[in-house]
């Protein structure tokens, strides 16, 4: 059902040791929307992703999937829950000892009941979706950064996950490839109804694909705003949010903030 909360981040506090990253994050992602986690460098966007995907345990608070607690659940239930989402890591994070085909096939081998021939077909199809048809037998080290990223996406969507997480999808891509990736993200959402969570600070991409967004701030160490990024840009009451979404161009001031 569209509109209902698919993922809920509830009073989440994150820290490395005693170094606080973000506290009291509280927002929800609706089913079938493209949700952006945005903020300046070093504000903890990627760390938030790690908490949502089960790689790092929160200091306090919880993440709920379809209303069910993720961090209060048992280890086994958590492993189960992880299978409903795919993650595209910043550098692709392909397994370097395997070919692209083996990379995409591994989740299928582990969790889908398919024969070898079917796995080969699904793998070829997923790779062709991201424009890598014919690269089945290449190793990750033989590819460019952008191709690795796309192969990572093919692997992330191998099992048709309900939720796709993207960590800085357009970083390291040329503008054209970045736009193609954005279009692919929208297409996946439209055709499969996938809920998409994107960590990004690329404004062009944020406005192009984001339905709603949360803004994290490194100084305040918490979220400053949640909502439609275009509305936030035009009418957020918080100048820090408007400043970010207009590249520091609010209040008619040109140039970098802080120069006087």
């Amino acid at each position: 059902m569209p509109g209902e909360a698919h993922i809920t981040v509830s009073h989440l506090t994150m820290a490395y040791g005693d170094f606080l990253i973000q506290r009291d994050l509280d927002f929800s992602v609706r089913r079938g929307e493209v949700f952006i986690v945005m903020g300046g460098s070093g504000c903890g966007k990627t760390t938030l992703l790690k908490h949502m995907t089960g790689l790092k345990e929160p200091v306090s608070g919880d993440v709920l999937y379809g209303g069910r607690s993720f961090w209060q659940a048992s280890e086994e239930e958590r492993e189960q829950a992880k299978r409903q989402f795919g993650v595209l890591f910043q550098g692709g994070a392909l397994w370097s000892s395997m070919t692209l085909a083996e990379n995409v096939a591994l989740p299928l081998r582990l969790y889908a009941k398919l024969g070898e021939a079917e796995i080969r077909d699904v793998t070829a199809y997923k790779l062709s979706l991201v424009g890598l048809a014919g690269f089945e037998q290449y190793y990750p080290a033989e590819l460019s950064g952008g191709m690795r990223k796309r192969a990572g996406l093919a692997r992330a969507m191998a099992l048709d996950p309900e939720i796709l997480y993207f960590d800085e999808p357009s970083s390291g891509l040329d503008p054209l490839s970045a736009r193609l990736l954005d279009e692919l993200i929208l297409e996946l959402r439209d055709s499969l109804g996938t809920t998409v969570v994107v960590v990004s600070h690329e404004l062009a991409s944020i406005f192009a694909i984001g339905d709603r967004a949360v803004f994290l701030d490194a100084e305040a160490k918490t979220q400053l705003a949640v909502g439609d990024p275009r509305q936030l840009r035009d009418s957020s009451p918080d100048p820090r949010v408007r400043n970010f979404l207009t590249r520091g161009g609010t209040d008619g001031q040109a140039g970098a903030a802080g120069v006087d």
Binding site: G54, R83, G86, V87, W95
Partner: peptide, 18 residues
């Protein structure tokens, strides 16, 4: 160690693989 640096181990964990 290289797999750790390359996020390959995170990729496994996030897939529900120990």
């Amino acid at each position: 160690g290289t797999m750790k640096v390359n996020e390959e181990i995170d990729a496994l964990s996030s897939m529900g693989v120990n």
